[in-house]
Amino acid sequence: MTTAPRPGGESRRPPTTPASRPAINVLVRTTRTTTLVPDRRLGLDAVARDSGLHPDLVRRFVALGLVDATRDAGGRLWFEPSALATLARIQRLRAALPLNYASMGLVLDLLDRISELEDALRRSNAGSSRSDESWI
C-alpha cells in the first residue's frame, strides 16, 4: 500500500510492523568500518553493530550457547567472523518459527546435522559413477 507520490516522484510507504514486514533473506549488514583484531576476531560491539542486535542480546545468545565466543583476560567477548552468519540464521529462524531462544539451540543443532548429512550424501554420490539411479 503506497500513498500519493511525493514531489520528486518518490512514493512514501507507510511503516511496516514486524508481522507485515516481508521476509528478508540476509540480515547481516556488512560495513567496511568493522575492525578486526590481528587474529581476525570481532569484538562484542562490532558484532552487535554489524548484526543489528543489542549487545545484551548477543551476550544472551552466548550464555545460551547459540553463538560461540571466547573471553580474553579482561573478560571481553571475542567472536569469529562466522558468528555474524550464525546470528543472521538465528534472526531468520526466530522470525519464521514460534520458538523461544532456548529451544533455538536444538533447531540449530538439527539443521547443522542435516547439512552434514547432505554434504556426506553429495560426496558419496559424486564418487559414484553409476548412472542407473535416477532421483526424479
Rank of each mutant, 00 (worst) to 15 (best):
M1V: 08
T2C: 06
A4V: 04
A4M: 03
R6F: 11
R12L: 11
R13K: 09
P14T: 07
P14N: 01
P14H: 05
T16P: 06
T16A: 09
T16N: 02
S20V: 10
S20L: 11
R21M: 14
V28D: 00
V28H: 01
R29H: 10
R32F: 15
T33F: 12
T34E: 11
T35N: 14
L36Y: 15
D39C: 11
L42C: 14
V47S: 05
R49V: 15
G52K: 04
G52M: 10
L57P: 06
L57F: 12
L57H: 12
V58D: 00
R60W: 09
F61Q: 05
L64Q: 03
G65P: 03
L66M: 04
V67N: 02
D68Y: 12
R71T: 08
R76N: 14
L77K: 01
W78Y: 13
L84C: 00
A85Y: 08
L87N: 04
A88W: 07
R89L: 10
Q91C: 01
Q91H: 02
A95S: 05
A95I: 02
A96D: 04
P98Q: 08
P98I: 09
N100D: 12
N100E: 06
N100G: 11
Y101A: 01
V107A: 06
V107L: 03
D112R: 01
R113F: 03
S115W: 05
S115Y: 07
S115A: 00
E118H: 05
E118L: 02
D119F: 07
A120Y: 08
A120T: 12
R123F: 01
R123L: 06
A126P: 02
R130T: 08
E133I: 15
E133L: 15
E133Y: 12
I136S: 15
